[in-house]
């Protein structure tokens, strides 16, 4: 930049302590990825049971079990990320209600309880009660998937994570991963209409999430100096440039194209490929967005 060539403004840190590296590592990426799938399965199951009940009726038990597994992965990695994991119980004994972490812990625990109940009801084939409980589980899944956005926004130091954009991204990630997972889980049990619906959800959530990322990529740097410095890590020869674009192509651009192609060509294989790409790519996208603000020196 031009100002660096001016003697008066050329400033270099010549003595300082080593700054901390990455504080929230890949464990947090897995946490967010698994939670998106766990909550997304519930959203999509709820939608399928109303729009395509015949296709979805056999998915009650496998969906509840899958959501239970992914929410447990989410909780396990949350625990593993703590430096004092055996003090996790402090959250429930000394909760600080202004903290998204504390509120989220209670909501996630209640969500897990509902998932256990859903699995039990599905096993007992009590479909009527299952569907009633599913309604409340789907409602609770909204704040459960959103609270990470609140938590990231409470990380005041990381200007990139703004609540409005992160909230939208969390919901879209849940819809994207939920529809992708259900396409794979449902397989041939799903009717063509149900597959169409899941394809539309997958394609549209990919499109909207991609638009938000590109908006932040292009317009974010115009709003704040810290965002500009953060986005530099995914521009040019930045350390996360390749991973960022790999994630965008795998999670959003290719699945969008494949969803359209699969519907035009009536190919379930292409639709499944879109689903797999979206699920794998989502972890990459989440990881890049988690890492880059942590590379900035804070002091």
């Amino acid at each position: 930049m031009v100002h660096e060539t001016l003697a008066a403004t050329n400033a270099v840190v010549t003595l300082d302590v080593a700054l901390p590296g990455i504080v929230w590592p890949w464990l947090v990426t897995v946490n967010m990825w698994a939670k998106s799938i766990g909550t997304g399965i519930i959203f999509v199951l709820f939608m399928l049971l109303r729009m395509h009940p015949e296709s979805a009726k056999s998915l009650r038990l496998p969906s509840a079990v899958a959501a239970f597994v992914f929410i447990n992965i989410f909780l396990l990695f949350t625990l593993a990320d703590l430096h004092q994991p055996f003090r996790m119980w402090h959250i429930f004994v000394y909760p600080h209600w202004n903290s998204a972490i504390a509120v989220g812990s209670f909501m996630a625990s209640a969500f897990l309880g509902l998932l256990i109940l859903l699995a039990f009801l599905a096993f007992k084939k009590n479909n009527e009660l299952f569907d009633k409980v599913l309604l409340w589980t789907a409602i609770l899944a909204i704040p459960v998937t959103l609270y990470t956005a609140a938590l990231m926004s409470q990380a005041t130091a990381r200007e990139l994570w703004q609540m409005p954009a992160e909230s939208a991204q969390m919901i879209l990630a849940a819809l994207l991963s939920g529809s992708a997972f259900m396409l794979l889980l449902g397989g041939n049990k799903l009717s063509d209409e149900a597959k169409n619906t899941l394809g539309v959800v997958l394609g549209l959530s990919a499109l909207m999430a991609f638009i938000i990322y590109m908006s932040e990529y292009i317009f974010g740097p115009m709003k704040a100096e810290e965002i500009a410095a953060t986005i530099d890590y995914i521009k040019g020869d930045g350390p996360y440039t390749v991973m960022f674009w790999l994630g965008q192509w795998m999670t959003y651009i290719l699945p969008m194209l494949f969803v359209v192609l699969s519907r035009v060509g009536k190919s379930d294989a292409i639709l499944k490929l879109a689903a797999i790409l979206a699920l794998v790519g989502l972890a990459i996208v989440k990881h890049v967005w988690l890492m880059i603000p942590q590379l900035l020196p804070m002091s």
């Binding site: 929230w24 990320d81 004092q84 994991p85 003090r87 996790m88 972490i101 005041t156 804070m298 002091s299």
Partner: peptide, 26 residues
């Protein structure tokens, strides 16, 4: 004694003033 080591505070501090003590893990 109460800290669980979630490092949320490290992420939140705009001044980089908080660290994880390598001895106490808090």
């Amino acid at each position: 004694e109460r800290c669980i080591g979630c490092a949320g505070c490290v992420m939140a501090c705009p001044y980089g003033a908080i660290y994880i003590d390598p001895q106490t893990q808090t």
